[in-house]
Computed example of a mutant assay.
Amino acid sequence: MPTVTELPTPDPRVRMFRSDPEVDCFAVVTRRHVVVVDTFGTPGEAAQMLALLGDDLAGRSLLVVNTHSHFDHAWGNALFAPGGPHPAPILGSRLAGEVLRSPEAQAKLARKQEGDARFAGVVLHPPTVTFGGALTVDGGDLTLELRPAPGHSADQLAVWIPELRFLLAADALEFPFPYVEKDADLPVLLATMRDLRALDPAVVLPCHGGQHDASLVEHNLAYFARLAAHPDTTFEEALADLGLADVPNADFYRDLHGLNVRATRAALR
């Protein structure tokens, strides 16, 4: 099982946890609640995060948010599900609940379990509190606005903390760039990124790529603008255009670049 470690952020009330090299998840410590944002790919990784939260859990209720239904964000839900070791309300979009209850999700889990013993004990649990549109969590001192952020996936939410101007962007923003699974989703993702830019965040915390300032939004939009102008752009050329010589998980992002090129060409047609 991967080891979960904590990374610093500019405000200790927003805690960042990494299962390297897969994903970053978060916990927002408010006066009333500890709000866990995403649960990693397994309950074991989620349990490591909960142990690191330590004394912050004392005297506060526990809430969980699924930004979306992808395995590295929601397959640790069993830790918090009814009857689990740490039952708590799990908030997510209505669509995320539908996806996690679907036969397709069960089939994906079965494939993962066949190929990797890490997932042997995973049982899918959808959010227990679902909603359409936006939802606000009042923590007493901090507000968490759960905002629709589709494009990377149709069920995705981002978390905006207006008092801090912190944006927990899920996979709507990434370093070096986000991606779309389906060609038709590219205009939706671009609209979401523009909506997130309008928030004028001071700190952007995506689930892949580490902590950034608001320039991450501009870098991501610039990447797709380059593809629209030059759809034959190679992965290496795209990195150079962003001022990067290399990135972690380069082979992974090279494949994702191919998906984005395909979606861009479809949009241009």
Rank of each mutant, 00 (worst) to 15 (best):
M1D: 07
T3I: 15
T5E: 05
E6W: 03
P10M: 12
P10S: 11
R15W: 09
R18H: 14
E22W: 14
F26S: 00
T39P: 00
T39H: 03
T42Q: 09
G44N: 05
A47D: 02
A51E: 08
G54I: 01
D56C: 03
L57E: 03
R60F: 05
V65T: 07
H73C: 06
W75I: 03
G76C: 07
A88R: 02
P89F: 09
I90R: 11
S93I: 10
R94L: 15
E98H: 14
P103L: 07
A105D: 03
E114M: 06
V122Y: 08
H125D: 08
T128W: 08
F131Y: 15
T143Y: 14
L144A: 10
A149W: 09
A149M: 10
P150A: 11
L157R: 07
V159I: 15
V159M: 07
A172Q: 00
P187S: 10
P187V: 12
P187T: 13
A191W: 12
T192E: 11
M193C: 06
D195Q: 15
L196G: 00
L199M: 13
P201N: 08
A202P: 02
A202C: 06
C207P: 01
C207R: 09
H208N: 10
S215L: 08
A222H: 09
L227T: 00
A229M: 09
A238N: 01
A238F: 05
A238C: 04
L239R: 03
D241W: 11
D241M: 09
V247K: 01
A250T: 01
A250R: 14
N260L: 06
V261W: 07
R262E: 13
R262D: 13
A267S: 13
